[in-house]
Amino acid sequence: MGDLILIIDDEPDICQLLQLSLGKHGYKVKYVHGLKEGMKFLERQQPDVLFLDIHLPDGSGLDALPLIKSRYPNLPVITISAYDNGMEKQKALTAGAAHFLPKPFNVGELQEILFEVKS
């Protein structure tokens, strides 16, 4: 496969868990811990899938989502959040997210979710 996945999340544990589980399936995984850094990465290199945390120390992934989707309309974005109150999920999907992943998540579902968002 060799698809490139970018993770923008401020929790190192989440990044490493995703990197480990996705790496086992042949994905190349890069991660950054802030929105600004993530946006710079996107300007240099476009991943095949983006995992975007909604609550970041330097901004809201939810606020950045429309901008990301306008610049990279074909990039599937999977939003991740520890706050799954239904409203955030609705906002994320309305703003263009391909999938909403509540934390904690089941790594066993990742492969299925990626297949879903890429098809």
Rank of each mutant, 00 (worst) to 15 (best):
K36E: 09
D9P: 02
F41H: 05
D84Y: 02
S60N: 09
I68T: 01
K118E: 02
L17N: 08
K69Q: 11
H25T: 11
H25A: 15
E11D: 13
E109A: 11
L6V: 09
G2S: 15
D84F: 06
D3P: 07
H55I: 09
H99M: 08
L56D: 05
M1N: 14
I54R: 03
G108I: 01
L67H: 10
S60C: 08
Q46D: 01
Q45V: 10
M87S: 14
L18C: 06
K36M: 02
K69N: 07
N106I: 00
A92F: 06
D13M: 03
L56H: 03
I80D: 03
D3F: 08
S21W: 05
E11S: 12
F100W: 12
N85Q: 03
Q19G: 15
V117W: 02
K28P: 00
H55D: 09
L52Y: 10
E37W: 00
L114T: 05
V49I: 15
E37F: 00
G108T: 04
L17D: 04
V77Q: 10
A92V: 09
L52M: 03
Q46K: 14
Q16I: 01
L101P: 10
F41R: 07
L93T: 07
Q45E: 15
K40A: 14
P47T: 12
S60F: 03
M39Y: 02
T79G: 02
L101T: 07
K103Q: 08
E112I: 00
L18S: 04
D9T: 00
